[in-house]
Amino acid sequence: MDAKLLEILVCPVCKGALEYRKAEQELVCQPCRLAYPIRDDIPVMLEDEARELDASEGEDA
C-alpha cells in the first residue's frame, strides 16, 4: 500500500483517520467500527463494501 495514499485517505463516513492492517488487507476506522477492503492494491472506500468489526476486534487487532 502506498504510504502517500495512506496519508490522504480518510473514512468516507466520519472523515476520520484509518488504520492500515497489512495482514488483513484492510483499512480500519475504529470510531465507525468498519473495515474497508483493499483489492489488488486499491482501497475500496464504499460504505456498502465495508465489513463491520466484531466486538472482539479491538484497536490492537
Rank of each mutant, 00 (worst) to 15 (best):
14 C>N: 15
8 I>G: 01
5 L>M: 13
15 K>R: 15
29 C>H: 07
58 G>H: 03
61 A>G: 05
37 P>C: 08
8 I>S: 08
31 P>F: 09
37 P>A: 04
13 V>M: 01
44 V>L: 08
27 L>V: 10
10 V>P: 02
55 A>P: 00
27 L>S: 04
25 Q>P: 01
41 D>K: 14
61 A>T: 09
47 E>L: 09
34 L>A: 07
58 G>M: 03
43 P>V: 10
59 E>I: 13
12 P>Y: 11
61 A>S: 14
35 A>W: 09
12 P>W: 08
38 I>N: 07
57 E>A: 07
41 D>R: 13
45 M>N: 10
45 M>A: 07
38 I>S: 06
26 E>V: 09
14 C>W: 02
9 L>R: 08
32 C>M: 10
6 L>K: 12
12 P>R: 13
51 R>D: 05
14 C>A: 05
31 P>L: 08
44 V>F: 02
31 P>C: 09
48 D>H: 02
44 V>C: 00
39 R>N: 04
37 P>L: 09
22 K>G: 07
22 K>N: 13
35 A>V: 08
26 E>N: 03
8 I>P: 03
32 C>R: 04
17 A>H: 06
43 P>L: 08
7 E>A: 14
36 Y>V: 02
33 R>Y: 08
43 P>Q: 09
17 A>F: 09
25 Q>W: 01
20 Y>H: 15
44 V>G: 00
18 L>S: 03
38 I>Y: 10
33 R>C: 02
18 L>E: 01
38 I>T: 08
17 A>W: 02
47 E>S: 05
15 K>C: 06
41 D>P: 00
37 P>Q: 08
59 E>R: 12
58 G>I: 10
10 V>R: 13
21 R>W: 11
